[in-house]
Design a binder for these strands. Structure first.
Length: 152
DNA sequence: GCCAACGTTGGC
DNA sequence: GCCAACGTTGGC
């Protein structure tokens, strides 16, 4: 069982959107490191901290779960998609993958970024490191437990 | 809107 | 392979 943190802009795709859809493909990842995590390490049942970024209250909203392992992200081949990738299209094959996730539970309180930063035991999280922009990050079992115990 | 940090691109 | 230019991320 692995633990992850996945960032999303709530204006684009929020926790409530996921709840409404019950299950959704995590498309649009266009970073190799993030892709490789999904492709090589994401397993069914892995637990995901669902993080809202670039918004008024950045933080972890709840826990989601991987319900389908990596498969090709077709938006890379769709010229009308915001996530269109010309070089994938040129190759005739998407070089990007996605997984499907489903909601598990929403936290009672938002685990906001400043609170996470001030919690002993979470300070090593990549999320908090200066200049860290990676949209999919590994989380340790210890960090996951601490976060869910504190905010769930 | 600002801007630091980072990843990618492309000419050489 | 280098590296400057450019685009993006994301907190503030």
């Amino acid at each position: 069982m692995n633990y992850w943190l996945m960032k999303t802009e709530p204006d684009v795709f929020s926790w409530d959107d996921l709840v409404k859809k019950k299950k959704a493909p995590w498309d649009g990842v266009r970073n190799y490191q993030a892709r490789n995590f999904m492709r090589d390490q994401f397993r069914l049942g892995d637990q995901v901290l669902f993080y809202h970024s670039s918004c008024a209250e950045p933080g972890i909203v709840g826990v989601a779960e991987v319900v389908r392992e990596a498969y090709p992200d077709p938006t890379a081949l769709d010229p009308k998609s915001d996530y269109y990738d010309p070089s994938s299209a040129k190759a005739g094959e998407s070089r990007w993958v996605m997984v499907d996730v489903a909601p598990v539970r929403k936290f009672r309180n938002l685990a906001d970024l400043s609170a996470i930063r001030n919690t002993k035991g979470l300070q090593a999280m990549p999320l908090l490191q200066k200049g860290q922009r990676l949209s999919i990050q590994p989380v340790t079992a210890r960090e996951f437990k601490l976060i869910t115990e504190t905010w769930a």
